[in-house]
Design a protein around this nucleic acid. Sequence first.
DNA 1: CTCAAAGTGTAGCCATGGCAACAAATTTGA
DNA 2: TCAAATTTGTTGCCATGGCTACACTTTGAG
Lengths: 152, 152
Amino acid sequence: MTKEMPPKIIIPADPEHQALRFNRVREAHQTETAEDYVELIADLIETQGEARVVDLATRFGVSHATVNKVILRLNREGLVVNKKYRSLFLTDEGRELAAKCRERHQVVTDFLKAIGVPDDIAELDAEGVEHHVSAETLKIFKAFTRKTRKIS
Amino acid sequence: MTKEMPPKIIIPADPEHQALRFNRVREAHQTETAEDYVELIADLIETQGEARVVDLATRFGVSHATVNKVILRLNREGLVVNKKYRSLFLTDEGRELAAKCRERHQVVTDFLKAIGVPDDIAELDAEGVEHHVSAETLKIFKAFTRKTRKIS
DNA sequence: CTCAAAGTGTAGCCATGGCAACAAATTTGA
DNA sequence: TCAAATTTGTTGCCATGGCTACACTTTGAG
């Protein structure tokens, strides 16, 4: 668009490629909320017997109105089932996603701890990082953690 | 909020603490855009001599209208200076932030490569991960990369 | 059984960051 | 020089995810 034919100046990085990178991050953001919600819903159902709007709101530190709005979207997207004034449930797809996320979350947390990040910080960082780690990197994380555990 | 006094059910994680985690991620998101923009503006100024709206739009893969909107915000926040129909500049604060981001970006990328992530994937993942890595973890990343380099 | 408390839903507001379409300025090339 | 192409700005639309305020169920204590 800017200067195609006359390459009078060094191109630091292929613009198109860089755009792909940022698109990838944007897409990740769109799924992040969904992932966090289904993961927590699954957790709550397991540990508390049911997932309720109040609990989600408390855990996420947002208002129940916000939770409701997100739940509406997740319902629309076929991840969550909700009946009025009743606790929340996951669809098969939701459960699947939750499982995947939990697994990934664990891998990232374990990896961070394995390389020496203090537990509390590892938990904090994992929360943000997990959504942006590719399958390939995840595999490497897993292998690394395994290796480290053998040694120690 | 839900069940304080009667702990009839196991608490899986301190809700308040978990809320802090998610708040942290949300804050990170708010700064992400700013960080990406100042970083790219700095890059463009260095390599191209100037940073222009079109270039930012191309690199980020968004419309120039979007870029303009973000620039407006960054201006409001004192990171970017823009005069109408002129190329973009960073304030001192903006330059500082850009430097910090570039450094951090490099550390994350190098670390991923050091643990064996293929270069192209490392670049991709770093883009999303960098904004969510704490100073402590970053330090550990750096140390690890250094150590690995010595070995090889 | 009733009624207040707790939980849930809804409406309306805000900022962000997407977009397209149109307007205006600047740059360029013939 | 001056018209066309490019770049930039603006407007108005959308979805998301924040919030408060208010309305409505459900629940549970008395």
